[in-house]
Design a protein around this nucleic acid. Structure first.
Length: 275
DNA sequence: ATGACATGTCGTACATGA
């Protein structure tokens, strides 16, 4: 089973690119971010015509997340993160699909830093960490997929020293990501490509894609049960080179039906985090 | 250090993004 995440940067403006990618790459389940469309303007029919059912949480102009599936019903379990009833951004949607509980997320960008937007990013991250702990505690096969707006390490940025003051690479943001992973999540792409320069975003400026001046900010995190089923994780890099494309590329994992590897022993820090 | 480019909006400039 192939599960992908893709920040489309406008689901309607990007519809031809999205549909072409769905046909060519054939993911079974997809998390989309940055729909930039109100609830009633999601292109449900075009997506359904390709064999996908969908749930989505739209918002006028900004944000917006969706989950698509061509492998069975989508059982929505929540939209919006708990912990702040005043947070009206459409940034989180969660569903059980084909035996996997999937949280699709679009973490706040946080720039400029310092400022209220950066504070919001860190608060949102804290709420995600709290909720993620509950998900892990369930023992179910769980995945968190989306645009985390964080480069976890130096290896994930084309030029780390240029990004130190940016909200996407700030020590506080990286620390929050590390805290999340410390609960016991597996960063699928990094785990199967250790030490490799591998990016998921290239900005539109200065020929960034051609120069491979990229960032790795779109992540697929697997709970221990799912990590045992991980067989592949890749970036559909070519999509970033298409006409009228998003500044992000799709990222996906292939999961086997059964465990493929022996579970590694939990680290002491993980045991502590789960208590 | 700046700005390059792209999105959507009751546009024709602005807010937002990363």
């Amino acid at each position: 089973m192939k599960i992908a995440t893709y920040n489309v940067n406008g689901v309607n403006g990007r519809l031809p690119v999205l549909l072409r990618w769905l046909e060519e790459s054939g993911p079974d389940i997809v998390c989309l971010q940055e729909l930039k469309a109100p609830q009633e303007k999601f292109p449900e029919k075009a997506i359904r015509d390709l064999g996908y059912e969908a749930i989505w949480h739209g918002q006028k102009s900004w944000n917006g997340v969706a989950i698509l599936s061509r492998v069975g019903e989508i059982h929505e379990t929540r939209r919006g993160l708990p912990g702040d009833p005043d947070d009206l951004h459409s940034r989180y949607i969660e569903a059980a699909v084909a035996g996997v509980l999937i949280g699709g997320l679009y973490l706040p960008n946080g720039n400029p830093k310092p400022g209220s937007k950066f504070d919001y990013k860190l608060r949102w991250f804290d709420r995600l960490i709290d909720h993620a702990a509950e998900l892990l505690g369930s023992g179910l096969p769980v995945m968190l997929a989306g645009d985390f707006n964080v480069m976890p390490t130096d290896l994930d940025v084309y030029k780390p020293e240029r990004w130190l003051d940016d909200a996407l690479f700030a020590p506080e943001a990286r620390a929050a990501y590390a805290r999340l992973l410390g609960q016991g999540w597996t960063d699928a792409l990094r785990t199967l490509h250790p030490g490799e320069k591998i990016y998921t975003f290239w900005d539109y400026f200065r020929n960034a894609y051609a120069r491979n001046a990229g960032l790795r900010i779109d992540h697929l995190l697997l709970s221990p049960v799912l990590a045992d089923r991980l067989v592949a994780a890749e970036v559909d890099r070519d999509v970033r080179g298409w006409e009228k494309t998003s500044d992000h590329a799709p990222v996906w994992v292939e999961l086997a039906d059964k465990p493929q590897r022996r579970r590694r022993p939990a680290a002491a820090s993980e045991v502590g985090a789960s208590l």
